[in-house]
Amino acid sequence: MRESPWERWRQRVDDRLGDPIWWNDVLQLAKTVLAAVAAWVLAASVLDLPQPFLAPWAALLVVHATVYRTFSKGMQQVAATVVAVLLATVVGEALGLSTGAIALLLVVALVLGTVPWLGAEATTIATTGLVVLTTGFDDDVMLIARLLDTAIGVAVGLLVNVIVWPPLRRHTAAKALDRVDDGIGELLTDMAGGLGEGCQDEDVDGWIDRSRDLDGDLDQAWSLVRQAEESARMNPRRSAKVMKNPREWHELLRRMEQAIAETRSLARTLGGQQAHREAWGEAFAEPWISMLGDTGRATSAADPEALLDVRRRLEVFTEELRSTERSPEWPIYGALIINLRNIIDAMDRVAAANPIGRSRVPIRLPMGRVADA
């Protein structure tokens, strides 16, 4: 029975509502808006500053994806904002609001933006300075007010990002790891299916290309794990302790790195053979292809027991071949067996860890809507 459009839409919405990464992004957006609005209200309504636009501007600059980056990158951006305010005041006092003043301000701002300590914030200095220059600069009280605006935005942004559920990116990293091990399992399963049906050279080329794609996914996973590690720095949440030194996650990434390399080596070995099953003989081809498929399915399902079972079967199979087989294809048998054994040994710990685990948010659309559709 085919799914109705409503059911497909409902499934997509449920997937999104249960995705902790999506909720993390929503929370970050809400915190950014909250910080900017709070800074504006404090500067405009509470302190009644004359032009409080720099308060929400500074708050937007400070709220970053991690607490550590809020302090490090955010402070660079705040310093750039202060420099821009002072620069606009000096240029405005000297040249007034003119074409020459704007040109000079932009040149100096872009040069200052190359200073390493400012973190290459040339655009921030230029845009902030331009706004300050064109909205008024000829009053010392205005200069102090704008510096106060900036300070308010900085303080509010820091407080909101640190106090209101400080971001911890472990779910993002875990999902990236989960995507890689799923990809490895799917590739192994497809390879087994292709061998069973009689693969062609283009099939082997496709498997090798997919292994390279997995390398790209793995690079992204490494990057996200590093970001998760950064998100734990200066993070007051209790769960941040695990991510401050995620050695286990690094080990899982290295194991998947090895599994991808072994899978590519396996594909290249297969690509060097013509008429695979016919050349090997059914005594080797049938059990080995079966174990390859089982390895892929166990990897996708994150089932360490199933992987260990395949490992035991492979050991028994190897011993039987050693005592009975005298085929000239022995070098190929050995290469394929070693590749498969190394993949299993690499992925059993990954399956046992199952990084993403049960991290879905328990929010779904009400079932009653389906009956009404």
Rank of each mutant, 00 (worst) to 15 (best):
V62L: 15
V62I: 15
V62H: 12
V63N: 06
V63E: 13
V63G: 12
T66R: 09
T66D: 14
V67I: 14
Y68S: 09
Y68T: 08
Y68Q: 11
Y68V: 07
Y68D: 09
R69C: 01
F71K: 10
F71G: 11
S72T: 15
S72E: 14
S72A: 15
K73A: 13
K73E: 13
M75V: 08
Q76G: 06
Q76P: 02
Q76T: 09
Q77R: 15
Q77I: 04
V78A: 08
A79C: 12
A80E: 06
T81H: 01
T81Q: 08
V82E: 06
V82Q: 06
V82Y: 08
V82P: 00
V82R: 03
V83K: 05
A84K: 07
A84F: 10
A84R: 04
V85M: 03
L86C: 10
L87M: 10
L87W: 02
L87R: 05
A88I: 12
V90K: 12
G92D: 12
G92S: 10
G92R: 10
G92K: 09
E93G: 15
E93K: 14
A94F: 08
A94I: 10
L95Q: 11
L97E: 04
L97Q: 05
S98N: 13
T99G: 15
G100L: 13
G100Y: 10
A101E: 00
A103K: 05
A103L: 14
L104F: 09
L104I: 10
L104V: 09
L105R: 05
L106V: 13
V107F: 15
V108S: 06
L110H: 02
L110T: 06
V111H: 02
V111D: 00
L112N: 03
L112K: 02
L112V: 11
G113N: 01
G113L: 00
V115R: 10
P116M: 14
P116K: 14
P116N: 14
W117T: 07
W117N: 00
W117G: 09
G119E: 09
E121W: 04
E121H: 04
E121N: 12
E121D: 02
A122M: 12
A122W: 12
T123V: 04
T123Q: 05
T124I: 07
T124V: 15
T124K: 00
A126P: 06
A126R: 03
A126E: 08
T127D: 02
T127G: 00
T127S: 06
G129S: 10
L130P: 00
V131Y: 08
V131A: 14
V131D: 05
V132W: 00
V132H: 03
L133W: 00
T134K: 06
T135K: 01
G136W: 04
F137M: 03
F137H: 04
D138H: 13
D139H: 00
D140M: 04
D140I: 05
V141C: 08
V141Y: 07
V141Q: 13
M142S: 14
L143G: 01
L143Y: 08
L143W: 01
I144E: 03
I144F: 09
I144R: 07
A145C: 08
A145H: 15
R146T: 12
R146K: 15
L147Y: 01
L147E: 01
L148V: 12
